[in-house]
Design a protein around this nucleic acid. Structure first.
Length: 226
DNA sequence: GCCTGATCATAC
DNA sequence: GTATGATCAGGC
């Protein structure tokens, strides 16, 4: 067992790789890859995702595109509790706050990222040290028509607020399945956004996130049947 | 207990 | 600052 040396050439190869990781702890996978496991993730929040990227052969880097461009697949780890319930919301992508006129759901980064996702659930309750957290069964998901419609509606409502210069009135409570939240190094980070009178304002950068109930439903469809 | 807003590391 | 990978933690 060793990490991938090249990106998977097919969806099946990706699934094969992911399937072999099921049951391993993060500590085991890290040791096999020759990297250290942090004792806690406070200063290593992205460590789990990067470990799985390594094992599955995702292209590293900070590109605003999918993790497996040639397959059109995005990789997402999903922390779950012992009952399979998501412990965290799922980051999707940065949200555009200027130049939003004319953006459509069809060509949005959210839709592109979520059109096909390889989910890798990780048993990651907080009381479990990172090294002992365990990889569960990965699966590939494409949104159903209803799921896409739900995401689209939230996206359109949020983007309309942004276009109207009302981004500062949008909270994480907006949206049924998709939410907009701050996404920055700290509270001092500012970016340009459309303001109330069509001008520009400075505001905290935002990102799109999937709410836990939505990812829970995705898991339920797969593991408990539709 | 859960959620929202804040925060951490890194690459460029 | 933008964007990736996310989790933390106080307030409710």
């Amino acid at each position: 067992m060793q990490p991938a040396r090249h990106p998977p050439r097919s969806l099946q190869e990706l699934l094969d790789r992911a399937g072999k990781l099921a049951g391993f702890t993060l500590g085991e996978l890290a040791a096999l890859a020759g990297i250290e496991t942090p004792s806690n993730l406070r200063r290593h929040k992205g460590w789990t995702g990067q470990l799985l990227e390594l094992w599955l052969g995702a292209e590293a880097g900070s590109k605003p595109q999918q993790d497996f461009p040639s397959l059109g697949v995005e990789l997402k780890t999903l922390p779950i509790d012992s009952q399979g319930k998501p412990l965290e919301t799922t980051y999707v992508c940065y949200a555009p706050l200027i130049g939003v006129a004319g953006l459509t759901w069809q060509t949005s980064n959210v839709r592109n990222k979520l059109s096909c996702v390889c989910w890798v659930p990780i048993e990651a309750s907080r009381h479990i040290p990172p090294a002992e957290r365990r990889v569960a069964s990965a699966f590939v998901w494409q949104p159903s028509a209803a799921q896409e419609q739900a995401m689209r509606q939230d996206w359109e409502e949020i983007m309309e607020k942004i276009a109207l210069g009302e981004v500062d009135s949008v909270t994480a409570r907006h949206g049924e399945v998709l939410q907009l939240r701050p996404k920055a190094a700290d509270g001092s980070a500012l970016t340009q956004a459309v303001g109330p009178n069509g001008g520009f304002i400075q505001t905290r950068p935002r990102g799109f996130y999937l709410k836990k109930a939505f990812t829970h439903a995705i898991l339920s469809d797969v593991f408990e049947g539709p």
